[in-house]
Write a protein that binds this DNA or RNA. Structure first.
Length: 560
RNA sequence: CGGGGUGUGGCGAAGUCUGGUAUCGCAUCCGGUUUGGGGCCGGAAGAUCCCGGGUUCAAAUCCCGGCACCCCGACCA
């Protein structure tokens, strides 16, 4: 229950100068957050209410699958992280105490939770178990961005499952899928559960929950019955009309034409008839990587194909091994060649490994040998597994779930004794949600030109009561009475009792975005009514003063 | 880490190129007026012009060094 007269809700008339994205601008303007430093954000009272509501939904759903809430420290002994091999991660904050003992600030909590389980869980009788906490995370991000979307300090709900075997893990994982589906439905988000990279977690499966919106950092590939992060998405490429094949490659002059666009225009062929050849350095050796001219190299897939990191070759390295950059091709190259699987058939155009020339009529296999792998990113219009057409969308990653396996339990000695008295490693899963990202995503997805439009489930208040007039006016007296009645009816209400003009109060109510606004003004009060307006639909209705509270409750029941 | 940009009362900006009294709008405080869309009149307070050094009679402005923040990329458990 809140009166705005003395509430710390500093709203701004103008966008902050350093904000680019809707959610960032609106969260600052509506007085939900303030910045303390790069990637460091303070939640002001109204914003904190929203976060707590999101966390409340998360807690309820996790508790319903039998997860147990606990709380682990942010400050942790470095030793624990050395044992799992994660001490050297760049994003990990490292520090020392006055006795010069090394510590880290937790970026997640696999180490600490597994340590406790290793200490205190002995028997198969104690499994399975799901533990979680809602705790601050610290990450030395190279580039925080977009308000709270990528911060260096943020709150995360992280859960960990402990099972006897892979089947048990599958079950725990499925429980989390169900709980997460419900959580994001209840939070009012548009969302997708997509296949994602298992990453350095080294597990066997992973999904991300993605909330589509322009501000998102991820790209997802969607088709009927298919959803995947573009980093791991697979699809059949769109066919390309290749020029007629030749008996052998023929050299053609292409003076100064180094890009796909330029070459395709000069030769009158589709971009897909070109072969892009990218020399990269893997384990000190140069490898020539080929993708179709209309495709993009997928760096994650390539890294997996190599089972190693790689870097683009420098122009001087390319020149000494092959020829001038911009005219590189696989024909005659004495290098290992890795060809993307989308390059099929013959009649391709590629660089001739000499300045100002390309080859036409190139046939892979006949003109060069290669190894074939899927190393491209899918494109809009490709055919997904199942036959649907791929669409690409940007999205905010609001949550991720991973099957971890035994990596952490083995490193930290988390084992149990089975029925036969045999010691086995506990099989783990981990499950994270970023409540701040849920808040930002809800704003990105719901906002209009007047401000925030909250899903009812996470709005800071259900109802924004505005009293128009001077403190002693009859409108304010009536508003005050209605405020009491609404409180008695159990409505979460914020009451604007400030001595301010009508424009300011009404605009602030729209900016803050509570589901229902009720205005008590002279105009309608003269007719014994107050005005209720739904924030999202804009629908307005006059409610008789006598039972305005009850009617407002009914209206709220009709709003998601 | 590479590239680009910005630092001037609480917020948003002008002034910087071409050195010469710190400027505007909003917000704040006081008095009055006004109350269904950030209204009006009068008065007031509030600035080490990001920091340090240099040039100069004189620096927000020019030079050198640093820091912070934003954006793009790299990176991202």
């Amino acid at each position: 229950m809140t009166r705005l007269d003395n509430y710390f809700l500093p709203t701004l008339r103008e966008d902050p100068a350093d904000a680019e994205w809707t959610s960032h601008k609106l969260m600052v303007r509506a007085g939900l957050v303030r910045q303390l430093g790069a990637g460091l954000w303070t939640w002001l009272p109204a914003g904190h209410r929203v976060v707590r509501r999101v966390e409340g939904i998360i807690r309820k759903e996790l508790d319903s699958i039998g997860a147990q809430e606990m709380l682990m420290p942010v400050l942790q002994p470095a030793e624990l992280w050395r044992r799992t091999g994660r001490y050297d991660i760049d994003e990990l904050f490292k520090l020392r105490d006055r006795k010069d003992t090394e510590y880290v600030l937790a970026m997640t909590n696999e180490e600490s939770v597994t340590h406790h389980v290793a200490q205190d869980v002995r028997s198969y009788r104690e499994l399975p178990m799901i533990l979680y906490h809602v705790q601050t995370k610290e990450r030395d991000e190279p580039r925080p961005r977009a308000g709270v979307l990528r911060a260096r300090e943020f709150t995360m709900k992280d859960a960990y499952s402990f099972d006897r075997d892979a089947d048990g893990l599958d079950h725990s994982y499925a429980l989390h899928v169900e709980a997460y589906d419900r959580i994001f439905d209840r939070c009012g988000l548009e969302w997708y559960r997509v296949e994602s990279d298992v990453g350095m977690m080294g597990g066997s499966a992973a999904h991300d929950y993605m909330a589509p919106c322009e501000a998102g950092e991820n790209e997802i590939a969607l088709a009927p019955g298919y959803a995947a992060d573009i980093e791991v998405a697979v699809a059949d490429p769109q066919p390309v009309e290749l020029p007629p094949p030749l008996d052998e490659p023929r050299k053609v002059p292409t003076p100064g034409l180094t890009t796909v666009e330029e070459v395709k225009g000069a030769l009158g062929v589709p971009a897909g008839a070109l072969i892009k050849a990218m020399p990269v350095i893997v384990n000190e050796r140069m490898v020539l990587v080929l993708v179709r001219g209309d495709h993009r190299l997928n760096e994650l897939k390539l890294r997996k194909a190599f089972s190693a990191g790689f870097r683009p070759a420098r122009p001087e390295e390319i020149a000494s091994e092959l020829g001038p950059a911009g005219f590189i091709g696989p024909v005659g190259a004495e290098l290992p060649v890795l060809k993307d699987a989308a390059i099929q058939g013959e009649g391709y155009v590629c660089g001739a490994n000499e300045a100002d020339a390309h080859l036409i009529g190139v046939a892979p296999g006949r003109d060069f040998s290669f190894e074939e792998v899927d190393i491209r990113s899918v494109e809009a219009g490709d055919l997904a597994p199942g036959g649907g057409k791929i669409e690409l969308e940007r999205a905010i990653e609001v949550a991720g779930i991973f099957k971890l396996g035994t990596r952490y339990s083995e490193a930290l000695g988390a084992t149990y004794l089975d029925e036969d008295g045999k010691e086995r490693p506990i099989v783990m899963g981990c499950y994270g949600i970023g409540p701040a990202r849920v808040v930002a995503a809800a704003i990105e997805q719901g906002a209009d030109d007047k401000g925030i439009v909250w899903p009812r489930s996470i709005a800071p208040w259900d109802l924004h009561l505005v009293g128009l007039g001077r403190p002693e006016d009859e409108t304010m007296v009536a508003a005050e009475r209605l405020y009491e009645e609404l409180r008695d009816a159990g409505v979460e209400v914020v009451y604007d009792d400030r001595d301010a003009g009508p424009g300011e109060k009404l605009t602030d109510a729209e900016l803050l975005g509570c589901p229902l606004r009720v205005v008590v003004g002279k105009r309608t009060l003269a007719e014994g009514a107050v005005e209720a307006q739904a924030r999202r639909s804009g629908e307005t209705e006059r409610l008789p003063v006598a039972d305005a509270a009850a009617r407002a409750v009914e209206l709220l029941d009709g709003i998601d």
